[in-house]
């Protein structure tokens, strides 16, 4: 089963064109959708999760027409939104049971089993009787995962899941997700590059409503080998360096400014070659050196 998105476009009433004729094919497994804030990731996620109507385009999940057969999609959908709240005065267990019924698990015994299993897996079993109002951010996020995983979904959409989690929680969370890719299409939408590099076998980079790159992360990194150069620059010279070279990113390392520069050959003596990572891929694409702006998205290593 794969998810086929064709020519999806969406414009908001205030004039913003959130999605511009997006086309993607997403197979089973972990798929990362990378892009900056305002790129259109959440709009795309909400459309796929049947919460929004696009202006044009089509989406098919296997043989289900996602846009027009919303009920069928919802039967097999797990959606963890970017922002959500909870009823503060209800316990996790009760609310999860409630959702289990809503998702069709109407038989009591099997429901109990599913709920228990999910609570254990998300490490919420010990606190299942506490009111959700008292949960920390990480616990709430895990609760959201539990809800999303109810009913064995075939399409799982996870929108910016690790923003706001501390490092330990983030690792736990990613571990949780990593198992899911076996039997479902899992779309992980994020602006945190590490999430994608750690989890996803395929990815796309999206910005301003357009897909700039569709690739397998490893292959994309491979392509950049030998083209990324690094130099430590004093702050006062930064402007000059930016003018003269193709700077793709600027970082601080222990208080000193470090620039990464794209170049087929070495840009200068002060520059040293550096082993590229997915972040470099990302910045390279964003700055226009790889992949198109307004051009057909480059498919690398398909």
């Amino acid at each position: 089963m794969e998810l086929q998105i064709r020519n999806l476009s969406k414009r908001y009433p205030n004039g913003v064109q959130a999605l511009k004729k997006i086309s993607l094919t997403i197979p089973q497994g972990m798929y990362g959708l990378l892009g900056p804030n305002g790129a259109g990731k959440s709009s795309l996620m909400r459309t796929l999760a049947t919460l929004q109507e696009p202006d044009e385009g089509s989406v098919r999940l296997g043989d289900i027409d996602v846009l027009h057969q919303k009920d069928r999609v919802r039967e097999t959908l797990g959606y963890l939104p970017q922002e959500f709240g909870v009823y503060p005065r209800v316990s996790a267990e009760r609310l999860l049971e409630h959702f289990a019924v809503l998702k069709g698990i109407t038989e009591r015994r099997s429901r109990r089993e599913v709920v228990e299993a999910l609570l254990r897996q998300t490490n919420l079993w010990e606190v299942r009787k506490e009111k959700l109002g008292g949960y920390s951010g990480g616990m709430r996020q895990r609760f959201g995962v539990a809800v999303a995983l109810l009913g064995d979904p075939r399409l799982i959409i996870v929108d910016e899941p690790t923003a706001g989690l501390d490092p330990a929680e983030r690792v736990r969370f990613l571990n949780l997700l990593s198992e899911l890719g076996e039997n479902a299409v899992v779309i992980l939408s994020t602006h945190i590059v590490e999430d994608v590099s750690e989890l996803c076998s395929r990815m796309a980079i999206i910005d301003r409503g357009e897909i700039l790159l569709e690739a397998e992360p490893l292959r994309a990194v491979d392509e950049l080998r030998g083209r990324i150069w690094r130099r430590t620059v004093p702050r006062t010279e930064l402007r000059e360096v930016e003018r003269e070279h193709e700077v793709i990113s600027t970082k601080l390392l222990a208080g000193r400014t470090v620039v990464h520069v794209y170049g087929e050959t070495s840009p200068g003596v002060d520059f040293e070659p550096v082993e590229p990572d997915l972040e470099d891929v990302y910045f390279t694409v964003m700055s226009g050196h790889c992949g198109g702006r307004g051009v057909e998205p480059v498919e690398v290593g398909v």
Binding site: T50, D71, R74, Y79, F84, G85, V86, P88, L102, K103
Partner: peptide
């Protein structure tokens, strides 16, 4: 309005209910 006010509506609206 409770669901929207609490921000829980994405969870409800994506569940398969009529």
């Amino acid at each position: 309005t409770r669901d929207v006010a609490a921000g829980m509506h994405p969870l409800f609206y994506t569940a398969p209910i009529r």
